[in-house]
């Protein structure tokens, strides 16, 4: 069974996917400056995945790469937390050191500099990777195994 949406739906989805995904990535990368962060931005990017799946069906075979992306994000998060164990777990050892995301923040009201935050920024990215992959994987698996949205149901039924 083929999942067929009209040309209007697929075209609008193709147009809207890129802005939604870019907005989600913006939310993740600016998590230490503006409202949002890893979880919220990841959910926004996963909603663009939902749009693609609704428009085009459960395309391709993405279980391996999405689950490896999720594991990578979670492992990165735990490792970033464990590297601070010389002081405590989740100690922000990069803040104010001048290295990666280590610029100093002027106290009080300031315009917000992207090169600050230390491990907070890196953990936002790691959690964002995990949430993107996790929610996309849930959506993709449900669409794939539900049958009607699976683009290759008939072929896989013949195989097994």
């Amino acid at each position: 069974m083929n999942w067929k949406m009209s040309r209007v739906v697929t075209t609008i989805a193709d147009v809207l996917v890129a802005p939604i995904a870019i907005f989600g990535i913006y939310l993740i990368l600016h998590g230490h400056l503006t409202p949002g962060g890893g979880f919220q931005g990841g959910a926004v990017v996963a909603s663009s995945t939902a749009l693609l799946i609704i428009a085009h069906g459960a395309f391709g075979e993405h279980k391996k790469d999405l689950s490896s992306l999720e594991s990578t994000g979670l492992t990165l998060f735990i490792l970033l937390a464990l590297f601070g164990l010389g002081y405590t777990m989740f100690y922000n050892y990069l803040a104010g050191t001048g290295t990666l995301f280590g610029a100093e923040v002027p106290s009080g009201i300031n315009p917000g500099y992207i090169n600050t935050g230390g491990t907070v920024t890196l953990m936002n990215i790691a959690v964002g990777m995990e949430v993107i992959a996790a929610l996309s994987l849930i959506l993709w698996m449900m669409a794939k195994r539900s049958g009607s949205m699976d683009l290759e149901t008939s072929r896989s039924e013949v195989e097994e």
Partner: peptide, 25 residues
């Protein structure tokens, strides 16, 4: 001062209360 982070919510989520975020993930 502690985190060099403007966003207090992000500082609480990923530094002060990081273990809770780990549980969430």
């Amino acid at each position: 001062i502690d985190d060099e982070t403007n966003n207090v919510v992000a500082a609480v989520l990923f530094d002060y209360r990081g273990i809770d975020t780990l549980g969430e993930a």
